[in-house]
Lab assay of single mutants.
Amino acid sequence: EPLWIRPDAPSRCTWQLGRPASESPHHHTAPAKSPKILPDILKKIGDTPMVRINKIGKKFGLKCELLAKCEFFNAGGSVKDRISLRMIEDAERDGTLKPGDTIIEPTSGNTGIGLALAAAVRGYRCIIVMPEKMSSEKVDVLRALGAEIVRTPTNARFDSPESHVGVAWRLKNEIPNSHILDQYRNASNPLAHYDTTADEILQQCDGKLDMLVASVGTGGTITGIARKLKEKCPGCRIIGVDPEGSILAEPEELNQTEQTTYEVEGIGYDFIPTVLDRTVVDKWFKSNDEEAFTFARMLIAQEGLLCGGSAGSTVAVAVKAAQELQEGQRCVVILPDSVRNYMTKFLSDRWMLQKGFLKEEDLTEKKPWWWHLRVQELGLSAPLTVLPTITCGHTIEILREKGFDQAPVVDEAGVILGMVTLGNMLSSLLAGKVQPSDQVGKVIYKQFKQIRLTDTLGRLSHILEMDHFALVVHEQIQYHSTGKSSQRQMVFGVVTAIDLLNFVAAQERDQK
């Protein structure tokens, strides 16, 4: 057995438009009618409502009807409940999964919650491996369901041993009777949507819809739904939504950006999952974080739909894509998950301010006199920076000697690579993860907040409520011999709460 199987392995699926269902090699399930009293909570997966979006479509000038398939009504709160249950049931049916076995899954959280929910009911041990950027709410729900959680670096490539995929496979090879159901490759993922989600949409719309818009992560949702719609409703256009920084969209030119990270969760990847059939997507749109969270908040405030950030991405694209539809036509959007997962993220004004998705003037509360002053007023001194090749031991000596707790790590040209902190280095040394002679590049981390000289002290204040420091950066445009230009970030300084307090105190003292 291989040590790991690539999540982007070539698909062996034989589905073709027009091929009889009787030739399918898979076990198919028909939607079942729910009894009045459910035998367990797993029976509350599927049969989610279709809700008309009344205000947002009109606000953006849509002539067509805009409908939302509300997947956050599933038992675990997301569309991923469907595939989690289906993968477990299919693994039980073919004898792969037996009582007492362990389920391991690399996930952005929602599939993990679905699997942990099913594992709690069915009696399996469950280990979820997820990147650090995923919300604390997801972690809390997983723990409450009895799952064990392993976190991995957000910026690790999918084929790196440190990625959530790599760590999951390492655990599988170490733990007896453990299984990775593997949402990236498992046919049960798109089949769950082909058999149930798509049929529900067709039934709820009486077979009449002209466009379907869905955000894409593993691709199982859009693949399964689109294949069924292509068979039953061939005139329906399928629109895929991919965040900026991901590479799922086609044509490839759409993916060209210097951005590699994004805040919206559960969609987009740096590889093409095996289950994603991009041939059934008629057109791709890219979405960005700001519009995703703005539209998610709009869905909550104006439509009462308590959905997550990827739902915002989907609707932001839908109001663009559906401009081509006329009166009497219908566009369906998939709202994948609930706001429950993001209470401390985009639902929080403070978080939105820190990330730059909300401006101070958007909030009406009274601010102190210094709130709208610029960061450049602080008069920061030149920063202490270190090269990635310097040793951890030497870096600790320098920081202690100069009285700093942290320093930016830059390359020879001064471009920011990340940050090192005294606390992080000492804990890594004590844990045996690094040696004093190791290069400081081994303990770089990139989960820090950046701020510009033109940003306000109010925004800085919000950042420092949650973080010990902020890195002050400025952009530099560099022209190359080819005539092309590129933008790079340079370090201007490091600012802490002490710097802000000293500035405010000094100004008030001078005024007296």
Rank of each mutant, 00 (worst) to 15 (best):
I238H: 00
E252L: 15
L254D: 03
T260N: 05
E263H: 14
I267N: 00
Y269P: 03
T279K: 13
V280N: 03
K283A: 13
K283W: 12
W284I: 00
N288S: 11
F293I: 01
F293C: 02
T294M: 01
M298L: 15
I300M: 11
I300R: 01
E303A: 06
L306K: 04
L306A: 07
L306P: 05
S313R: 03
A316D: 09
V317K: 07
Q323I: 05
Q326I: 10
G328N: 14
G328S: 14
R330E: 09
C331S: 02
C331D: 00
L335E: 01
P336C: 08
R340H: 04
R340I: 05
F346K: 04
F346M: 12
L347T: 02
S348I: 05
M352H: 01
G356H: 08
F357C: 08
L358S: 03
E361W: 14
D362I: 02
E365S: 13
E365Y: 09
K367E: 15
P368Y: 12
R374A: 11
V375C: 09
L380T: 10
S381F: 11
S381Y: 12
A382F: 13
L387S: 14
L387F: 15
G393L: 14
D405F: 13
V410C: 12
L417G: 15
M419L: 15
V420E: 08
T421F: 01
T421E: 08
L422T: 08
G423H: 05
N424S: 02
L426F: 15
S427Q: 03
L429V: 13
L430P: 12
A431K: 10
I444T: 09
I444L: 12
Y445K: 08
K446H: 14
K449R: 14
D455G: 12
T456I: 07
M466L: 14
M466Q: 15
D467P: 09
D467E: 15
F469H: 08
H480E: 09
G483T: 15
K484A: 03
S485H: 02
S485A: 14
S485K: 02
S486H: 09
Q487Y: 11
V491I: 14
V494R: 03
D499H: 05
L501I: 09
L501S: 03
N502S: 15
V504R: 08
A505E: 12
A505Q: 08
A506R: 09
K512R: 15
K512Y: 02
